[in-house]
Design a protein around this nucleic acid. Structure first.
Length: 223
DNA sequence: ATCCGGCAGA
DNA sequence: TCTGCGGGAT
């Protein structure tokens, strides 16, 4: 209980420090909710620059819309998303999640949807795991769920928030318990973790420049 | 060479 | 837990 309060304060402190360093991240890039869904699949273990090339291809082919994407032969879809890598699986995954998107009728009343129920539906789709599901829920549907990724787990462990790298769901629930349920905070905090992981808290960390140097166990242990 | 805003199957 | 998937940028 006491520890929980300290953790709450520490998390908000971390967010403040990251936000000061990186600025508001304005996530998720994309011109429509459906484009965000597509990007969430395409970016699986893939550099965002390559995802943008694939999305450009889809735009140029005028299939960045659910019905038109589904009307495209799967081999043609594979060709378009090729720059994003894993294109054989991703083309299939895009079709599956697009079918879900059309079936769900979610666009009408996303605010009323039950987040955990929707998440369960998404997880049934082959190729949609925890992170992709949460990205779709948070960034495309603007529903309150905290997205975890490899950067977040690594940084949280190094900072000393967690003892070692936690699994996806426990870490997600920890953040959701310790932070105010605020969609905009969830949105930007995840983006800040990514910025931290790409810039400082890499595999080979750059602790000397890190904005969290003052509160990070790992940084302190190196002095 | 290495790494990427994961996931599924074994 | 380990491995295949994969093009593209550094």
């Amino acid at each position: 209980m006491n520890e929980n309060i300290a953790l709450k304060a520490k998390l908000l402190d971390i967010y403040r420090l990251l936000r000061t360093r990186f600025g508001y991240r304005n996530w998720w890039p994309g011109n429509s909710p459906f484009e965000i869904v597509v990007g969430a699949v395409l970016t699986q273990n893939t550099n965002w620059a390559n995802v943008e090339k694939a999305i450009q291809n889809l735009n140029a082919a005028d299939v960045l819309e659910p019905a038109r994407l589904l009307s495209l032969p799967v081999d043609e879809l594979k060709r378009l998303v090729r720059p994003a890598g894993f294109y054989n699986q991703k083309a299939v995954r895009l079709r599956a999640v697009t079918r879900w998107w059309l079936d769900c009728g979610i666009l009408i009343a996303p605010a009323k949807a039950d987040v955990d129920a929707l998440c369960s539906d998404l997880l049934k789709i082959d190729g949609i795991g925890f992170e992709t599901a949460d990205c779709i829920l948070l960034y495309a549907l603007r529903l309150p769920t905290f997205v975890i990724d490899a950067y977040t787990r690594r940084a949280a462990a190094r900072i000393g928030i967690t003892a070692g790298e936690m699994r996806y769901e426990p870490l997600k629930r920890l953040f959701e318990r310790c932070l105010p349920c605020d969609i905009d905070l969830y949105n930007d905090f995840h983006a800040q973790w990514v910025a931290l992981g790409k810039t400082y808290c890499r595999k080979k960390p750059l602790c000397s420049e890190c904005p969290l140097g003052g509160i990070c166990q790992f940084a302190k242990s190196k002095i």
